[in-house]
Amino acid sequence: MRAIVFGGADIDDYSFCKKYINSENIIICCDRGLLHADRLEVKPDYIVGDFDSVADTLLKEYREKNFDIEEYPSHKNYTDLELGINIAIEKGADDIIIMGGIGSRIDHTFGNMHLLYMLLKKNIKACLINEHNYITLTNSKLKLKGDKGETVSVLPFMGDAFGVTLKGFEYPLNDATMKCGESLGVSNVVVDDEAFVEVKEGCLAVMKARD
């Protein structure tokens, strides 16, 4: 089951969102993420957060319509996005797409990548996406379909990565070691109809990016 989790980072062009969302998804809005669901005319199943960034008028509108809203204090040990992800886990999601999780606040974006790592450890498929980026993590094998010509960066995450193989890329690797503190893996290009990423030990961040 797929969950769409909306965070509060800006989304300027919503066209990319629509191909990921259907009526069978769980929709979870984290604080200002409610704005994105509202603009997409997507009905949220859960609204969660401390609500320090969503417009009061918008939140009031959803309160009056009796949507499921969970409010937390601003002083807490979890970000609003993590609260939303925890709901997705509790509801049995095995595929979580995070929209509004990549923004101008690099600390939030980096923290959200750590949430991807938490989900990876739970064997839950997950990614962060916006108009220009797609970020996911793997600790085994990953196949990229239909991405010929796209720029893809592959970097070690949370430590060195061993036994890294990249196939279908302009710069392939075979059973290589990728070390933290090096830029090897930035701005590779997919040259085949399918590309493959494999790591035997460790974790890789796989990032599609375009200007």
Rank of each mutant, 00 (worst) to 15 (best):
I135L: 13
P156W: 00
E82W: 09
I28M: 08
G101K: 03
G103E: 10
N66D: 15
I87W: 11
D12K: 15
L40H: 04
S15V: 06
K125T: 13
S23C: 13
R2M: 07
A55C: 07
Y171V: 08
L144F: 09
M99K: 11
G163Q: 09
D68Q: 14
V186E: 03
E71C: 05
H114V: 12
K200R: 12
I135P: 05
Y20D: 08
D107L: 09
G149W: 05
D192V: 04
V5A: 07
G92Y: 08
N130D: 15
N133R: 12
S53Q: 02
I28E: 10
L115Y: 13
K179T: 00
E24H: 14
V48M: 02
G159M: 03
F16N: 04
F51H: 00
I4V: 14
D147M: 15
L40A: 05
D52Y: 06
K145M: 12
I129D: 07
T57H: 09
E24K: 15
Y171H: 07
L166Q: 05
I102S: 07
V186I: 15
T57C: 08
A209Q: 13
F157N: 00
C29L: 10
E198Y: 08
Y20R: 09
P172A: 02
E182A: 11
D31M: 09
L142P: 04
I135S: 08
S153H: 06
M207S: 13
T138K: 07
C180F: 00
E41A: 10
L40E: 01
V189G: 01
L142I: 05
L184C: 04
D50S: 05
G149L: 05
S104L: 11
D94Q: 14
C29T: 10
L35K: 14
M207P: 09
I11Q: 10
V191K: 08
E41D: 12
A88R: 06
F51Q: 01
S153V: 02
V152A: 04
G146V: 07
I98R: 07
V186Q: 05
Y78H: 12
S74G: 06
H75R: 13
G103D: 08
S187Y: 11
L83N: 03
D13I: 07
F157A: 00
I69V: 11
G84P: 06
V54L: 01
F162W: 11
I47A: 03
K65N: 10
D52C: 03
N174T: 14
S74Y: 11
G159F: 02
G84Q: 03
N188Q: 05
E61S: 14
E198F: 06
L155V: 12
K145F: 15
A176Y: 15
S153P: 08
V154S: 01
D80R: 01
I102G: 08
T57P: 02
A93E: 10
G168K: 03
D192W: 09
T79Y: 04
P73R: 07
N25V: 06
K76I: 02
R32L: 06
I102A: 10
